[in-house]
Amino acid sequence: MIKRIAATLILDSNQIINAYNFEVHLPVGKLKYTLERLQEFEVDEINILNTSHSNSVVNDLDKLLEDINNWHVSTPLAYGGGISTLTDAVYVIKSGVERVIISANTFFDFDLFSDICRTLGDQAIILHLPIEFKGGSPSIRGYSNKLLSDVNALIPINWGGEIMLTIVESDGKKFPNWQNIGDALGIMAGHSNFILAGGFADFKDISAGLSLDQVSAISIGNYLHRVEHSIIEIKQKIKSSIQIRR
């Protein structure tokens, strides 16, 4: 399988932010300038998570897409944030975004999640699961009663979408927590096509993550904002050992 290196861009109040533990948001700048650079670095895909969505996905997305079109972005995009109806999800795809990122909140409305999968096709969907390891068993951030094992049981075994697994405790850090990643992937052993995120800031860790059978991509967040040529350098270093997109 050809593996991918993705970028996660988190938007808060229309600005890109550095996120730490899903709690602290520090401003980086405008989406335009980072997209411009990511294009030049030939990142494989860009996952935009809009944390400051208004009540209207249509309005949020229209403005964003207008800008993206103006900036001539050709890198595949996925968009998430405020998607709470089938109409929202369909709108994202019809707008030209390749994939829609579904939050855990929408996933827990399982009928809705199933509808979205049926309508768009599994492969147009990324399910974003932020995992916390507070007090023993891993659970979904914001839903301490929703254990990862429960979520795992809900996802059909042959589901064709990808799961973005973010370890909350590693968010914004310089090292992933391999113990937590191992535990989470172990619980979800029946699934593959994971996008790992949280603490990937070194080519060795990214290489180790991509080497895992269940993992199809690593998504980099803060690291790409603070080290200019992170994507280029990572690709150069790992291309001899792992099959990645050129």
Partner: peptide, 17 residues
Amino acid sequence: MYSHTDEVEMTSRYRKE
């Protein structure tokens, strides 16, 4: 914009933006 512990370095994106 960053934590000091990020040890951010010079970027042309920051320069331009």
